[in-house]
Write a protein that binds this DNA or RNA. Structure first.
Lengths: 240, 240
DNA sequence: TACTGTCATAGTGTATACCAAATCTGCTCA
DNA sequence: TGAGCAGATTTGGTATACACTATGACAGTA
């Protein structure tokens, strides 16, 4: 996902603490589904598996808990979060609000280099959609959205967006699997980029909103399918 | 602040973990200024002072770090955050976005009881403005804003708003001290409530935006004063 | 004076061991 | 089948130890 092993601070490079590294690994496991929603996590087992002591493992679990990726209840074993559809739609609404605003800000000041980069991502997605694996398409998609918000230049907005996105990550990944929706998504991506190029803040905002509304519809469809299908929908168990 | 000592979960009441209790106390110290911005925190000293071991203290510090109230860097002692004006304005922009959207949602579905409660808060603020202490006015103000967002019914929105607000807490408290601005603020509060009563989502959103823009101006003024005044502006030291 | 390098001290990050209290699991019995 | 119980697990918290990093004071140098 993110090749996070170091961290900046006034130019010096400081290695991440062990807790943070463990959190990174766990996060990837959750996001990619190696740890299934609802699955129970046992501190000692995990810490042995990763060869670290309980202390950094506890801290890592706390981190993911605060990010909403796992549900932590006092005295109980943590579980991988498995939000219901309504939780996800609530999340998505705020996420949409934030990202759309990011696009609005970005339209006013995005650099030429960033625009070129976004175009490159779109091109690669075009190829990826037909030829390559789904994970790659997904990651390009994520990068596209992230870069737009980063172009807003508002650190708080970027951080908030990234937190919300982390919680939606798994769901969005599943959504990407449904290849049928891709052409529409791609067309919308193009429209967003056009609006940014035109420095049209209103349009950029509207296009992003539209796009994420569409995402909401896709997710709803997937959720309902898996629910009636073989009952393998997300388990109960709250999202902390 | 919040009388948090217990927590719900399917009806049973479970006491907060020690870490959470410690975090609550530290948070209050930071928000009320008992721990000054930029001040250095030492794990061992704090844990002794509160009579707990390092483990829960570390967890509490991590929590506040995530909330943006203290800045944590590996191997270094945590510091109470002391954001610069630009940081605060960025925060406020996102905060405004979230709260305004909350008001929009709230307008559509706020209960009669909640409206009555908001009116009560306004009335008390009116009294408080002339007769009582400033801390009380401030807390009523905070409660007013919080309740509006809570009326939105979107848990993610509420949570995000509360996080952002926590980071702005200290600054907003200082802003409240400037009594000269109160009549305007109060008038705006009334307008917001009127819009909610009228179930006018657009107007509610607009009024909240206006109000928080005004807050931004107040904060900017205060910040500049204190900076040129006696140089007692916020210290350097980043916000994590 | 201003700068640079050294060094002791202080403080965090991590490992370990241990205990109390809560939870979980499987069994028994109705 | 389901309620209730007891023992095994597991977490929350304490205490301690130690390696490694950062910090600040000091001495030496230009």
């Amino acid at each position: 996902m993110m090749p996070n092993r170091t961290e900046y601070e006034d130019g010096r490079i400081i290695p991440l603490t062990l807790s943070a590294q463990v959190a990174d690994r766990l996060r990837n496991w959750v996001l990619l589904g190696d740890l299934a929603p609802g699955e129970v996590l046992v501190e000692r087992v995990l810490s042995e598996k990763l060869g670290v002591s309980r202390t950094p493992m506890r801290e890592a679990l706390q981190m993911l808990g605060r990010e909403g990726l796992i549900a932590i209840t006092p005295n109980r074993r943590p579980r991988v979060a498995s939000p219901g559809l309504s939780d996800i739609l609530e999340l998505l609404e705020v996420h949409r609000l934030v990202e759309a605003h990011g696009a609005r800000l970005a339209a006013k000041q995005i650099s030429q280099a960033a625009l070129t980069d976004l175009q490159r991502l779109l091109d690669e997605m075009e190829l990826s959609g037909t030829r390559r694996g789904e994970l790659e398409f997904f990651e390009l998609d994520m990068a596209f959205h992230r870069q737009i918000v980063e172009a807003s230049g508002n650190a708080t907005l970027i951080e908030t967006h990234s937190h919300l996105n982390a919680r939606l990550y798994r769901t969005r990944f599943l959504s990407t699997q449904t290849i049928s929706g891709r052409p529409l998504m791609q067309a919308q991506h193009t429209q967003i980029l056009e609006a940014l190029r035109a420095r049209d803040a209103d349009r950029a905002q509207a296009r992003v909103e539209e796009h994420l509304h569409q995402l909401g519809r896709n997710i709803t469809a997937i959720f309902n399918e898996s629910k009636q299908g073989k009952g393998t929908g997300p388990q109960p168990g709250k999202t902390s």
